[in-house]
């Protein structure tokens, strides 16, 4: 639906910004609560840490990183266009630049996080 609708890049940029934003909001709510547990129930916190060493946990961690990176880069694009409206004629190009930067940062980070995954599966030595 998102691809066939004729909103173009601007609408996709908006949709991804909103989806990643809501996902990050959800993570922030959980994350403040889990860090609160470090203070009031450290053993409960420690007993939950294994999640970050399971495949679904690592995939979620990787998706969180992707959401944060997209939201950060596209947010910067929004700020640039809001404060320098004359650049709006290049909004498409700026969005493609976002994806170039996303790949440049994201690929090495994916390698590292996949390393955590491989170690948790026993494919790589700890």
């Amino acid at each position: 639906m998102l691809v066939r609708y004729r909103g173009g890049e601007g609408m996709l940029a908006w949709a991804f910004h909103r989806i990643s934003g809501v996902a990050i909001w959800l993570f922030v709510v959980l994350h403040v609560v889990d860090i609160f547990l470090v203070g009031v129930a450290p053993d409960v916190y420690d007993s939950l840490l294994f999640i970050y060493a399971t495949p679904p946990g690592i995939v979620a961690e990787w998706l969180l990183g992707a959401a944060v990176l997209y939201h950060a880069l596209n947010g910067l694009r929004i700020i640039i266009l809001d404060f320098w409206p004359r650049l709006t004629r290049f909004h498409r190009q700026l969005w493609y630049l976002n994806w170039v930067l996303f790949a440049i940062v994201g690929i090495p980070v994916t390698w590292v996080i996949f390393g955590q995954f491989a170690r948790s599966m026993g494919w790589w030595p700890k």
Partner: peptide, 22 residues
């Protein structure tokens, strides 16, 4: 942009979160 990306870089890339005990 600065705070969160730094936070993620340190706690998810440089360190493994599964080792970050209380």
């Amino acid at each position: 942009f600065v705070l969160v990306l730094t936070h993620y870089l340190i706690l998810h890339v440089l360190y493994d979160p599964s080792e970050q005990t209380a």
